[in-house]
């Protein structure tokens, strides 16, 4: 029972929100915030895998997000709608409701492959190289998209609204939110499984002492690649979901600013803490909205918050710990018996 308590809790929470949306208890603005929370959770947990658990420093997460966003969007528009550039629909529009996860996954896979391309040269050595390379990749991806006119270039890419509305035509439920809940759950579940296995803990050993890890039998290069691909793939999925929230994307959404935002979430929540990343993604999304009336001053207040955090709690909200370590009582609900060692 305890084994599934977190699944059950998450499932019922999602159901509750979906019912509330369906019955019009939540206005469009609140819905939007909830959806952004989901995307931010995927982004922060996946970046935490590299920056927190593995102790490397990747600063171009938005680049992978952009790859996923464009791949999923282009696939969807090409396959399911009649478009000026891509011609008539290849598949019936209605089939999008069950093929959407496939295109989403494709976006993730392509993003993971781009991640692999980045990982091969940068993981030969350790240190600042990854930061520089990911920074460069972020810019390359953005500039590349800006210069590919078929997908709209700097003007951006749209048409995903039609996808969403053809989903609604089949069954009228809040589809995008459903997919975001599914994606968020999937992402957290995946990372949790990874970091709790002996296999995945290999990356923590790499962070603590890479030489020792390699000599004690961890295939460090392979582990770093796997973790990095997992991280960038999930960022791609987050991008695909993000593209369908507003139905419009442009390269400007995937700049270094966005990457920084994700990094702030990771450091706010605490390195190497999955629950910390989830909490901080939720909290950060709310703070961004609360500070919206401040307009430009927002970008003074939020960095200031970060500085204060670094001064008074440099390890983040939950550094290297999980919520169950901070509140041991939660263990009774979430940790299966016999797994407390």
């Amino acid at each position: 029972m305890r084994k599934y308590s977190s699944h059950l809790l998450y499932g019922s929470f999602c159901l509750l929100i979906l019912i509330a949306v369906q019955e019009n208890f939540l206005n469009a603005y609140l819905q939007l915030i909830i959806m952004f929370m989901g995307v931010n959770i995927i982004l922060s947990t996946s970046l935490n895998l590299v920056n927190g658990y593995m102790g490397e420093f990747s600063v171009g997460h938005a680049g992978f997000m952009a790859v996923g966003a464009y791949v999923t969007s282009v696939l969807n528009v090409w396959l399911f709608t009649s478009d000026r550039v891509f011609g008539p629909a290849v598949l019936p529009a209605g089939s999008v409701i069950y093929l959407f996860p496939v295109t989403l996954l494709m976006g993730g896979i392509v993003a993971a492959l781009v991640g692999l391309l980045v990982a091969i040269p940068s993981f030969k050595t350790r240190g600042d190289y990854l930061a520089i390379i990911t920074l460069a990749v972020n810019y390359i991806v953005k500039s590349a998209i800006e210069n590919i006119q078929v997908i709209g270039g700097a003007r951006g890419f749209m048409g995903m609204r039609n996808i969403v509305s053809s989903m609604h035509e089949v069954v009228n439920v809040p589809w995008v939110m459903i997919w975001i809940f599914a994606g968020t759950g999937f992402s957290v579940w995946l990372i949790h499984r990874f970091v709790t296995s002996t296999y995945g803990k290999g990356i923590v050993a790499v962070r603590d002492d890479e030489i020792a890890a390699n000599i004690m039998g961890v295939n460090t290069r392979r582990m770093k690649m796997v973790a990095f691909m997992l991280s960038s793939g999930l960022a791609g999925i987050a991008g695909g979901l993000f593209a369908h929230i507003l139905g419009y994307i442009n390269p400007g959404s995937f700049t270094i600013m966005k990457s920084t935002e994700v990094m702030v979430m990771v450091y706010l929540g605490g390195m190497g803490s999955l629950s910390g990343s989830v909490l901080s993604a939720v909290g950060f999304t709310i703070i961004l909205e609360l500070f919206r009336p401040l307009q430009v001053i927002k970008w003074v207040a939020i960095p200031l918050l970060l500085i204060l955090l670094m001064l008074f709690r440099p390890e983040g909200l939950l550094g290297h710990r999980e919520l169950t370590d901070v509140f041991p009582r939660l263990r009774r609900i979430f940790v299966p018996q016999g797994k407390r060692a």
Partner: peptide
């Protein structure tokens, strides 16, 4: 050169990485 953010038990587990088989 022990892994200091992992527990003693985890240290003993991870060193068996070469025998994982999955």
């Amino acid at each position: 050169r022990l892994w200091n953010t992992l527990t003693v038990f985890e240290n003993l587990c991870i060193s068996q990485h070469s025998k994982l088989g999955y």
